[in-house]
Simulated scan of single mutants.
Amino acid sequence: MKICVAQTKPVTGNITANIKNHLALIELAISKSAKVIVFPELSLTGYEPSLAKSIATKKEDVRLKVFQNISDSKKITIGVGMPLKASKGVTISMLIFQPKQPSQVYSKGHLHADELPYFISGDNSLMLQLNSQKIALAICYEISIPEHSEKAFQNEAEIYIASVAKFKSGINKAKTELANIAKRYSINVLMANSIGMADRAECAGKTAAWNKNGEMICELDEVNEGLLIFDTTTQTTEKYLL
């Protein structure tokens, strides 16, 4: 099975423009026979905590139906980042669209201190299962919480996908953490990161994949949008820059 992580350059707060960009990358992933594609943290709005309350939406937002339609027609699982309204605030969430299934939500359960004024913790218990393979999800800061990856291991995850918005100041630490997770639990790890400006800082890109020994096997650059595709059967990777 081919699993894809996308590297995007969000247009700040412009959901319509970002949906268009996502669809182009999804079509590219489909053309390369990917069965799963996961986008960076808050990919549909950009990582902008101060704007999140004003642009947050519900998972039933009609603008998002296009992802369910393409999932149904092309038989691909899609994970996109979006701030979602909850009863007591706004969550940093990933909407999951799978063929002929109701959409699901994975929300960031462990928040960084800087995020607490803008977001609330959400339900991060969702795990994907495709072709008998279990895929654990993580959103950014969660990769630094040992209990998060330990839970994924206890739940027999074979793949760990981190959707992040890492700046240049923090990318090396994130890469070390993800390499350690791969080695500690002997699982494949993928990371989807953004490029461009977000929250007054520059995102670092460097979307990457690690093997079960914790060795990086593929990495995108820091300036181009693109895709990294990992084949779970052959343990090989492909990358495509836009």
Rank of each mutant, 00 (worst) to 15 (best):
T16G: 02
N172W: 11
S149N: 04
A165H: 13
G122A: 09
S121P: 03
I19V: 13
S71E: 09
I55H: 05
A162P: 08
H110K: 13
P117D: 11
S132G: 00
S107C: 11
T57G: 05
M197A: 12
V66N: 09
E147N: 11
I92N: 08
K175T: 05
A162L: 06
N211H: 07
Y141Q: 04
T91R: 13
I55C: 07
V90T: 15
M127S: 09
E158P: 02
K100V: 07
I55M: 05
V66D: 10
L64A: 04
S87A: 11
I15V: 15
F67D: 00
I30Q: 04
S107Y: 12
I120R: 03
Q133N: 07
S71W: 09
I15S: 06
Y185G: 01
G196C: 10
V38Q: 04
A152I: 15
P102Y: 05
I143R: 14
F167H: 13
E27I: 14
K9A: 10
Y185C: 06
Q7Y: 01
G46F: 10
E202G: 01
K75E: 14
T57K: 03
M216L: 14
L116F: 06
K74F: 06
E177T: 02
V105G: 04
K75V: 04
N69W: 13
L130S: 07
Y160K: 04
P146E: 08
L241V: 13
F167W: 13
N124W: 02
S107A: 15
I161L: 07
T8M: 15
S132Y: 12
V5S: 02
Q68Y: 03
N21M: 09
K183N: 12
K75Q: 13
K2R: 14
T232C: 06
L126T: 07
A56N: 04
K175M: 13
K85L: 15
G122N: 08
I143W: 11
M82L: 15
K85M: 13
A162V: 14
N131F: 05
G196V: 11
M1T: 10
N193S: 10
I120N: 04
K75T: 11
D221A: 02
H148K: 14
P146K: 05
L116W: 01
N213T: 11
K9L: 13
A165V: 01
L111T: 05
I26P: 11
H112T: 02
L25V: 11
N69P: 00
I96M: 11
L95F: 14
I217L: 10
S121M: 01
L228S: 06
E60R: 07
T57Q: 03
Y160N: 01
Q104R: 14
K85T: 10
I92T: 07
A165M: 03
L130R: 04
G109S: 08
F230Q: 00
